[in-house]
């Protein structure tokens, strides 16, 4: 992983020195362990700030929207798919970008680590598929595979789909994983159980909209929840308003979501709202054979008409 950091710095320095880009968007060490934050580097001598490890789960495509500069951007598999989506939706031009591809081996779920240790986490280090967590009480080691973010553990697009530079050889893609097992489990419930399931799932929501803000798809100048004329949805903690927000937020991501997990990662109360977006991903794949962000020359499923589009929901 540290070789990734060196390679990212080397490539970024070269791009900035040769004036190929005006800025590089990457990650820097966060002020807390496991909280790496996005970072914009504009000068070659500043590239030392850039780092890479398994705590870079934020989706950097979110920082490209409507930018006018030439940009170098560090991208793992999911970020690259969201960059493709951005290009398709005219939020950035391909010519503006130099994509520094990072073959990804999954990001660590900070909640899983926090649940597994006692007391405050002082530092987290990783090597050879193991994660060592230092707390005041001592050191504890986890297998990285066991503390991955759930979306990473079922990811089948770890390598960037588009890139201009690569920091390492592509990694082997996971096979034999079922990304939609959790959605299928909910589908198997009765309507009554499903209603209850989501009632409990969404009950802790405080309407902070961190999920929306972390999402690279949510770039509307004014979000529907912030509109007041007309007011589409109540702004309080009413369970129906909360559910309406989550339902519509997910629906706005239909055929666009790459399951990067930024929403769940950003949630301060740990709601797995990905279950909703994943249902849409599952249906998009089953009904239209569509997965978001895999090709620059294909129009999205909800953007095209085919004579054989499924229509059995219409009377």
């Amino acid at each position: 992983m540290s070789t990734y950091t060196e390679k990212i710095r080397e490539i970024s320095q070269r791009l900035l020195k040769e004036c190929k880009v005006e800025m590089v968007i990457g990650f820097r060490q966060g002020t807390l362990p496991m909280m790496n934050e996005p970072c914009i580097v504009r000068k070659p001598e500043e590239v030392e700030r850039l780092v890479w490890d398994s705590n870079c789960g934020i989706n950097l495509a979110n920082y490209l929207t409507n930018r006018k500069e030439k940009i170098g951007v560090v991208a793992k598999g999911c970020d690259s798919r969201n960059i493709v989506t951005h290009i398709l939706e005219n939020k950035i031009k391909r010519e503006q970008l130099v994509i520094i591809g990072v073959p990804c081996q999954g990001m660590i779920d900070k909640r899983k680590i926090a649940a597994g240790v006692q007391g405050e986490i002082l530092s987290v280090a990783e090597a050879d598929g193991e994660v060592t967590v230092q707390t005041a009480a001592g050191a504890q080691t986890f297998k990285k595979a066991e503390v991955l973010q759930q979306n990473c553990s079922v990811c089948t697009h770890r390598n960037p789909v588009i890139h201009d530079e690569m920091v390492a050889e592509p990694v082997a893609e996971q096979t034999g994983v079922d990304p939609y097992a959790d959605v299928a489990a909910i589908e198997a419930m009765s309507a009554e159980e499903r209603w209850k399931f989501f009632e409990e799932l969404l009950a802790p929501c405080i309407r902070c909209y961190a999920c929306r803000n972390a999402c690279p798809l949510c770039y509307c100048p004014t979000c529907f929840v912030d509109e007041s004329k007309p007011q589409w949805v109540g702004k309080g903690q009413d369970p129906i308003d909360v559910r309406t927000f989550h339902f519509l937020r997910a629906y706005h991501c239909a055929g666009r979501c790459t399951d990067c997990g930024a929403c769940e990662r950003a949630c301060p109360v740990g709601i797995n709202m990905r279950l909703l977006t994943k249902k849409l991903n599952k249906d998009c794949l089953a009904l239209y054979g569509w997965e978001a962000g895999l090709a620059e020359d294909k129009r999205p499923a909800l953007d095209t008409y085919k004579a054989n589009d499924p229509e059995n929901f219409i009377h």
């Binding site: 959605v183 989501f198 559910r243 629906y251």
Partner: peptide, 20 residues
């Protein structure tokens, strides 16, 4: 949209789409 509403627990017969 119908599928997602159903996932959330709305009864299948509650919502209908038609083209007339």
């Amino acid at each position: 949209m119908k599928n997602l509403l159903e996932l959330m627990g709305i009864e299948a017969d509650r919502i209908h789409f038609s083209w007339i």
